[in-house]
Design a protein around this nucleic acid. Structure first.
Lengths: 200, 200
DNA sequence: GAAGGAAGCGGACTATGGTCCGATTAGTAC
DNA sequence: GTACTAATCGGACCATAGTCCGCTTCCTTC
């Protein structure tokens, strides 16, 4: 066989082999959506806008992302991925190398900043605040990991979820309404984390 | 003056004097909406449906409640009011009379049940999970009150918010997806509460 | 490189949330 | 009871999320 060319090689069931034009369109749509959201805020971007700017039909947008929420989640996942890289392999104290408590502190701060930074996208994305199963899963897993290092025992899955819950956009919106600023939120969160860790 | 009849007496600025037909319509609309939600679930109820069943025009629905969210929130507030009564003056341990820790425990359980019971309404109501400023405010105030009695010090507003955040519908939805049942959630929540109280 | 079939495309179409304004009605003053 | 005003009503109208299906494009196979 002179040709041992690239078989589809769909061994990894992950990206279910997207056709080239489909991949191109997905990329165009993400770029267009990101630009529009950046220009005028998530609230003011319609699906027709996105389709028009990407130069594709409206049907394509929905086939790719399923819904408005889906599109927003896709946008979020991009930034989320970058953030996850910093947590997994960036410089300490957010990345590995610092003592667990310092990492936890940096993690909370960073998470809060990220959430606030993407507030409008998160509101547009989630029927229930934000979530995106994988994104939330990563957060909980990491906190769980740090709590273990800090000697915490118990139902760590729930404790981790509970520790991160106050930093979700829905809760932050309420606090913001009451005039509580970011720094105070962080201080309160650190207090909570300390109590959890102290509980053993 | 033989007539000392009922002046409007708008001394209390609270209910801004609603015209009788307006009041009647509001009532019809709430009843109609409640019935429809009960029959087919919040998701499947359209504003036109509500207007039709209440026998009023669509415009009236929006003038009264502002939006779909507003209508759902109004429905929620009814049940919420009943629940608040039980907390404030019902039998212990949820109502007054029991030791603070038992009241807190009962409060968490009850709140969880209520939230789960109104899950679909809450999802339909809140862009950000649930909230309804007054409802959330009541919850936080009460927890704060109990935490004080339990000798907790610190930024109680934030601690209270953080303690209740894991019981919001958005978080519960995620946990449910992961196959975590209600009882386990409660146990985890009690653990969290204990750690907060133990922290002093 | 031609043919065949499947995946993907796109824009007309539908459903529903939300707005607007002329017609109507409750409440007030005489 | 009548006239007057302002609040309220209601349904036609608009914008946008989401669906559908005939047409096009890509990829494979020979």
């Amino acid at each position: 066989m002179t040709d041992l060319p690239l078989h589809p090689l769909p061994l990894l069931g992950d990206p279910p082999t997207e056709r080239s034009d489909a991949a191109r369109n997905r990329e165009s749509l993400l770029v267009a959506a990101r630009e529009l959201v950046h220009e005028r805020g998530a609230e003011a971007v319609t699906m027709d806008d996105v389709a028009l700017r990407a130069g594709v039909g409206k049907g394509t947008v929905f086939r790719r992302f399923g819904s408005r929420h889906g599109l927003m989640v896709a946008l979020l996942d991009d930034s989320e991925a970058e953030w996850q890289r910093q947590v997994m392999s960036g410089p300490p104290p957010l990345g590995p190398g610092a003592p667990a408590w310092e990492r936890l502190e940096a993690f909370g701060r960073s998470r809060l900043q990220t959430t606030v930074g993407h507030a409008d996208l998160l509101r547009a994305a989630g029927a229930s605040g934000n979530r995106s199963a994988p994104a939330m899963s990563f957060v909980v897993m990491h906190v769980r990991h740090l709590l273990i290092q800090l000697g915490v025992t118990g139902d760590l899955r729930l404790l981790s979820t509970a520790l991160m819950a106050p930093l979700e956009i829905g809760v932050l919106d309420v606090l913001r309404t009451e005039g509580i600023d970011t720094e105070r939120v962080i201080q309160g969160w650190l207090d909570l984390a300390q109590r959890i860790v102290a509980g053993g």
